[in-house]
């Protein structure tokens, strides 16, 4: 049987930034670069920084760009901000956040991603 808990409603949006605890090295580079100070530093070994103020996130993505461990942190647009696209040749419909997404487009931007704190 599933459990039940009495909890307050979460803030919306609250998933602006997602951490992968296995990849995060707790360097706190994301905490230090955030203009809005929405993150608290990693509380201890093995624990990524904590997203304390998700609703103050500006969605600038600098935390992701300055992370030295690829994949440890990613940003996610709120559901109501997710847009769609259509493949020109086939007419197939896609959208951000879909369950079965097409393969990633892997070409880096002009000039490359660069090192963390300079590129992605």
């Amino acid at each position: 049987m599933a459990d039940a808990h009495l909890v307050n409603n979460p803030l919306t949006p609250n998933r602006a930034i997602q951490f992968d605890a296995d990849l995060c090295t707790q360097c706190n580079a994301c905490v230090e670069v955030c203009r809005c100070d929405v993150l608290a530093p990693s509380p201890g070994p093995g624990e990524p920084p904590v997203l304390v103020y998700p609703d103050e996130c500006w969605f600038c993505g600098c935390c992701v760009a300055h992370c030295p461990s690829p994949g440890a942190i990613r940003m996610e647009h709120p559901l109501c901000q997710q847009v769609g696209w259509k493949r020109k040749e086939t007419g197939e419909q896609f959208r951000l956040g879909m369950a079965d997404p097409p393969p990633a487009y892997v070409r880096p931007p002009v000039g490359g991603w660069g090192p963390p704190s300079k590129g992605r």
């Binding site: 940003m75 696209w85 493949r87 896609f94 951000l96 990633a104 487009y105």
Partner: peptide
């Protein structure tokens, strides 16, 4: 990839989600 609030939020997030500028029409 250079404009503010676009490098990660659009170029990176959209690319990883499979948006392909060579093939796709962005709505």
């Amino acid at each position: 990839a250079q404009e503010g609030k676009c490098r990660i939020p659009v170029y990176d997030v959209y690319s990883q989600a499979g948006f392909d500028p060579d093939k796709d029409l962005l709505q």
